[in-house]
Computed example of a mutant assay.
Amino acid sequence: MTALRFDPIRLPSECEELRKEVRAFLADEVAAGTFNPFQPLREDADAREFSRRVGARGWIGMTWPKKYGGHERSFLERYVVTEEMRVANAPVRRFFVADRQSGPILLRYAPEHIKTDILPRICRGELCFAIGMSEPNSGSDLFAAKTRATKTDGGWLINGSKIWTTSAHMADYMIAIFRTSPSTKENRRHGLTQFLVNMKTPGIKVNPIGQITGQKEFNEVVFTDAFVPDDHQLGEIDGAWKQATSELAYERSGPERFLETYYVLTELVRAVGPDPDTRSAEGIGRLVAQLHTMRRMSVSVAGMLQAGKEPVVEASIVKDIGTVWEQQLPHRVRDLAAFVEEDAGNRETLENQLTFAIRTAPKLTIQGGTTEVLRGIIARGLGLR
């Protein structure tokens, strides 16, 4: 049984200085017209030059060794950068997955020549990564994966498909899990291996999946005898489940897991103005208190990552609570906004944001692991199953 720990961690002074730097940088980008922080539905997801400028500031690969282009800063400093980028609705999609989880996996499992080639390019904001986990007909059951990697001379041939692969349409690389052996009765997790896949490899086709919001960030990726060389195998053959579990601690615990619809809360505060009625004040206060609690939990997990721990259960709790909250937030804001007086167009931006947030909300409890899967992980970690 795992004992839950959410140590009370305060951000040190260097984090607050860094926050000022990031805010000033983002304000300059907004002023230059790079992005509109009040418009969550944008066509600037593939913001190549913005990514390079973020890399030039040293804010990608912040915690990685300097020999690979990193900056050896703390997970708490990285937390601050992520938080400010998310709150500002900055177009981070091109580099964020590589920074959050793909880079750490390469650091841990890739051969040296791969690390010296790819990691510095991630840090410079030049590369985009996708994650290949989910498959058709297997949902969030990672261990039901059927896409096969078959051994051949000098490498592996991949056949099958992955689905819901965010950013695969613009990714340079994918880190994916493929079946290399059958599972066993004793261990259904057995038989999966992790690979680094160059997305320009012949035999890979990317099919965009449209969303109700108009976005096309999800994709189906079909592999037909796509060749992956031996040196692109990451870690232990048939043992990827252990690596994936560790990887998801990075994916599930950050502030992006409760701030994706945050913009509707700040816009509600603007709409009600400096003198809200009692109902609005109480409702906003309750939401802010909940937000503060989740933030403290997320900062605590960042502190544990900084200490070299793998807080898988705690990260799952942050993701579970956070995504349910951000999914429900637009509906709560809409209820509170019902009594806001419509004068001087003070509701137009809020209404536009609510329309988008309510449409995008259903996906939030699916990406990064469904609520049901997360609660199974939590229950297992607490010795309840």
Rank of each mutant, 00 (worst) to 15 (best):
P202K: 03
R108Q: 15
R296D: 15
T323S: 02
L384W: 13
K242F: 13
G345Y: 06
I122C: 15
H232D: 07
L329P: 00
G345K: 07
Q290Y: 04
E49R: 13
I377M: 08
G303K: 01
Q243E: 15
P8F: 06
V54C: 08
E112W: 07
R94T: 08
A98Y: 08
A145H: 12
V92C: 07
D230L: 09
L4P: 09
F25K: 07
I114W: 02
E17P: 00
D44C: 10
Q327Y: 11
T166F: 10
A302Y: 03
R347A: 01
A176V: 09
K200N: 14
E112V: 10
T323E: 09
F35G: 00
R73T: 06
H232Q: 12
P91C: 13
L336S: 09
V312N: 05
T371E: 10
R296G: 09
A3P: 04
P37F: 07
R23Y: 00
S134K: 15
C123H: 04
G369N: 08
E43K: 14
L76Q: 06
G61H: 09
P12A: 14
W156V: 12
E251Q: 10
K216I: 06
E186K: 15
I321N: 05
K309M: 13
A144V: 03
A56H: 11
R23E: 12
I377C: 00
S181L: 13
G33K: 14
G381E: 12
T266C: 04
